[in-house]
Design a protein around this nucleic acid. Structure first.
Length: 509
RNA sequence: GGUCCGUUCGUCUAGGGGUUAGGACACCAGAUUUUCAUUCUGGCAACACGGGUUCGAUUCCCGUACGGACUACCA
């Protein structure tokens, strides 16, 4: 089998979209599965849309996601350079070849002239106005102008583009690994611009030339490229590379969570979830878009989630490490239909991966978060708190959020619970408990339980009736980790003082 | 409008000519937890529609509907 070489070819026009991460991931998975190579190619042929920092962002994002690049802009490889803007002459050379062999032609039409042509054709019923075999002879190009005129214009520096001369009516066939055979008539394809007037190639020329030169074996890209894929096939043929053509796989799109359509930043903003892997500040508007990373998503969780949006292993295993994904991945098992982006499922994955961490790892996160707020905590205690909280967290920040009760005594109390549970019985138990608790110097979950039991039985009050009140007094809230563990973590002095405060504030004596 | 692609629970999906159409998320209920969460058990819930082909179609074929992508000197 031919060496598997795949490429992820983003355009540095802004932050990397989450859908782009998935495309990169599928490429990476295929490469790793077959011990092949993953290539990063920067498609920066549109100088107008170039955004400084975007390329670095893309690299950083892939790195964070765990997607390693084997060849790319700053990783040595046999087919440098990997930035298309640095390969201008290469494309020009192949454009010349096409020109010479009659597969392409010069065109001098201005933007206004093109628009006029489209407007003229639009009025005709059902017609699809395009620059193609039916219209090219009415336009200003090397097919309609005499040779001398063409040379003159070029010599005079008149702007021109090079267009592909698409045959009038031929069936172009393409085998897509996901969709099977796709057939399109060339009558539906227009004479696409290959070289722009600024001397840069368009995507259509550049991707074909580079994929061929870089010996790409599989082109895995979004479904939005499917309509132009036949054009690319045609280009391979005209360049004489039909036999070396890569295999194509067009991925289903990531759709909006509700309604239909491609997932966009707007949707994400509206639904309150990120769309970019990392924080991104738009250099034009200075607007900051929070990334998945900063929001607290673990890369392994996001990757696992993304992998399952459009692909599945056919087994009932849901949790996959990146390595397991590499082994299990199979293009054949990619679905055909678009997948709606359900952030709840992503949250679930995040929870799974977060819980799988050790107390030490979680404790470390807690300590770091506390430090930001000027709170110090010993490692051992942080680990114990992490352990108590581990089943209740979805994001790393939840540990500090839920764990702050261990460092900050409640100033106020949940009124609903207070009115419901803070009664005479509760007051009696708390009053007694605050004294009893002081007697045991080492408060553990076990001793806390026995002290509480002793107190309640001596007062003849069932424990269940005052548990909520106790939690309220200790934490100010109605939910949290195991109460006995909470007491142990607080220590007898703190328990006692919080009970005192609660009695003073909520009433008692 | 034209071209291409698609359509199994609310969501991600498995399956595939004869199945009680399976799993996961979410949701709901019960159990456990002397509290909330966790956990466990259970429940709700799907083959877009119409024609064929066939003994039999959710599965194959054709239409229809619906949805999406594309339709630039953007990628």
């Amino acid at each position: 089998m031919k060496e598997v070489r795949v490429r992820f070819a983003p355009s540095p026009t802004g932050a990397l979209h989450i859908g782009g991460v998935r495309t990169a991931l599928y490429n990476y998975l295929l490469a790793r599965k077959h011990n092949g190579k993953m290539i990063l190619r920067i498609e920066d042929t549109d100088q107008n849309r170039y955004v400084p920092g975007a390329e670095q962002y893309i690299k950083d994002a892939l790195k964070w996601a765990g997607i390693e690049i084997d060849e790319g802009p700053d990783i040595e490889g046999p087919y440098t350079p990997y930035r298309q803007s640095e390969r201008k002459e290469i494309y020009a050379k192949y454009a010349q070849q096409l020109l010479k062999e009659g597969y392409a032609y010069y065109a001098f039409d201005s933007a206004d002239e093109l628009e006029a042509m489209r407007n003229r054709l639009k009025t005709q019923k059902g017609a699809n106005p395009q620059y193609d075999s039916t219209t090219r002879m009415e336009m200003k190009n090397s097919l309609t102008l005499i040779e001398g005129e063409v040379n003159e214009k070029i010599k005079n520096g008149e702007p021109y583009v090079i267009r592909l001369k698409v045959p009038a009516s031929e069936e172009v066939e393409l085998i897509d690994l996901i969709r099977g055979k796709v057939t399109v008539s060339t009558s539906q394809i227009d004479d696409k611009v290959l070289m722009k007037s600024d001397g840069m190639p368009t995507y259509h020329l550049a991707n074909v030339v580079d994929d061929y030169l870089m010996k790409i074996s599989h082109v895995i890209r979004g479904e939005e490229w499917l309509p132009s894929a036949p054009l690319h096939v045609l280009t391979y043929k005209f360049l004489g590379w039909e036999n070396e053509m890569p295999a194509f796989a067009h991925l289903p799109l990531l759709l909006k969570p509700d309604g239909k359509g491609k997932l966009s930043k707007r949707d994400a903003d509206q639904m309150g979830f990120p769309i970019f892997p990392l924080n991104w500040t738009d250099p034009k508007t200075n607007e900051l878009a929070e990334g998945f990373k900063e929001r607290g998503y673990l890369p392994e969780a996001l990757i696992n989630f993304l992998a399952f949006l459009g692909w599945n292993p056919g087994t009932e295993q849901e949790l996959f490490t990146l390595e397991e994904l590499c082994n299990a991945f199979d293009i054949e098992r990619i679905g055909k239909a678009g997948a709606k982006f359900d952030i709840q499922k992503a949250n679930w994955f995040n929870q799974q991966y977060l819980r799988a961490k050790t107390d030490e790892e979680l404790g470390h996160i807690l300590m770091a978060d506390l430090k930001v707020n000027g709170i110090d905590c010993e490692t051992e205690r942080a680990n114990a708190i992490a352990n108590a909280l581990r089943e209740r967290i979805t994001f790393p920040k939840d540990i500090a959020e839920l764990g702050k009760i261990f460092f900050i005594a409640p100033q106020s109390f949940d009124e609903k619970i207070a009115s419901k549970k803070w009664n005479e019985e509760a007051i009696a138990v708390m009053t007694s408990l605050k004294e009893e608790v002081k007697k045991s110097d080492e408060l553990t979950a076990k001793t806390a339980a026995s002290v509480l039991e002793k107190t309640t039985t001596s007062l003849g009050i069932p424990q269940g009736k005052i548990m909520q009140a106790l939690r309220l007094a200790l934490t100010g809230g109605a939910s949290g980790p195991d109460l006995m563990i909470t007491m142990a973590l607080l220590g007898s002095d703190e328990v006692s003082s919080r009970l005192t405060y609660a009695l003073n504030t909520l009433g008692g004596k």
